[in-house]
Simulated scan of single mutants.
Amino acid sequence: MIDLNADLGEGFGRWHLTDDEALLASVTSANVACGYHAGDPATMRRVCELAAERGVRIGAQVSYRDLAGFGRRAMDVPAAELAAEVAYQVGALEVFARAAGSAVAYVKPHGALYNRAVHDAEQAAAVVEGVRLAEAARGPGSPLPVLGLPGSRLLAAAAEAGLPTVAEAFADRAYRPDGTLVPRTEPGAVLHDPEQVIERALRLAGDGELVAADGGRLRSAARSLCVHGDTPAAARLARRVREELAAAGVTVRAFA
């Protein structure tokens, strides 16, 4: 069994980057942009309504405040400020998720914040503090899982704080031998060949391993598989990945 997630709602005003309706036909979890790297209130509301209608879990994809750079530029944000901004983003999405008859089911950082929280203990702790603030506002009995890279400072900090953690892998990103992602500034960081992406998804679900850029094998306990929503033909790719997983006897189901 594995969860299939993708980034949704990555537009702003009249500009739309992700094919949200098509992606929601295939994924089981939707990482919804919360307005800091992409997204706006109308987009967040629309995506939450569509996700709730289709039974797709809604996740808050929190980011550095970087609309111009799509949240992919390195930033130095004080820990207290970052924690507040994470809580703010989760809270904003929660309004629309609840209004749609659903709820925010997990939190996943985006872009530069995701990569920074892999190795930066302070920034990871700030993200976790923000999630805990948002969780406290939901009341008792409403845990907020954190989705992140296996072995990251983020998941370690979340576990230490008592938050549920979910390890994820990327079907369409290249990996370094140490299990971290190849930076997007390097050639081959994003995989575009559908057959290569599908092979990676099947290997992960069946054997629990990934192949690094140098050909080495990486063990992975990932429970969720990400297909980026902003890559060309993302919706078609997500549909094929889900079909091939099902054909291989893998149950595709939300972790949350």
Rank of each mutant, 00 (worst) to 15 (best):
L67I: 07
Q123T: 13
T165V: 15
P232Q: 09
K108Y: 08
K108N: 13
R240E: 15
N5L: 04
S152W: 05
T185K: 11
E94D: 14
L24Q: 13
A30I: 02
L218K: 12
R45S: 15
G162W: 12
A189R: 02
A222Y: 09
A171F: 00
D172W: 10
S26T: 05
L144H: 11
Q89I: 01
Y114Q: 06
A189T: 04
R98Q: 15
T18K: 12
G162L: 07
L23D: 12
D7Q: 01
R176S: 00
A201I: 13
E135R: 11
G71F: 03
D20K: 13
L24V: 08
A97H: 12
W15E: 11
A92K: 07
A68K: 15
A6K: 09
T231Y: 01
A124R: 10
V227Y: 10
S63Q: 03
A201T: 10
A256L: 13
A6V: 08
A117H: 04
T43F: 08
V56G: 09
H16V: 15
A159N: 05
G215L: 07
G206H: 01
V197S: 01
D3V: 03
A212V: 07
P232C: 02
E195Y: 02
F70C: 07
I58A: 00
G141K: 03
F96G: 05
A99I: 08
L113E: 01
K108R: 01
V56M: 13
E243Y: 02
Y88M: 04
G11R: 13
L4H: 06
R98H: 13
Y175R: 01
V95F: 13
N5P: 03
E209G: 02
Q196M: 09
Y114F: 10
K108W: 09
G130M: 12
T28L: 06
D120S: 06
R132I: 08
G139K: 01
E186N: 03
G249Y: 09
D19C: 12
A42Q: 15
R242L: 10
A6D: 12
R184W: 03
R98V: 08
G215M: 06
A234R: 05
R14V: 14
H37D: 04
L82M: 06
A74R: 13
R54D: 03
R176P: 00
G11V: 14
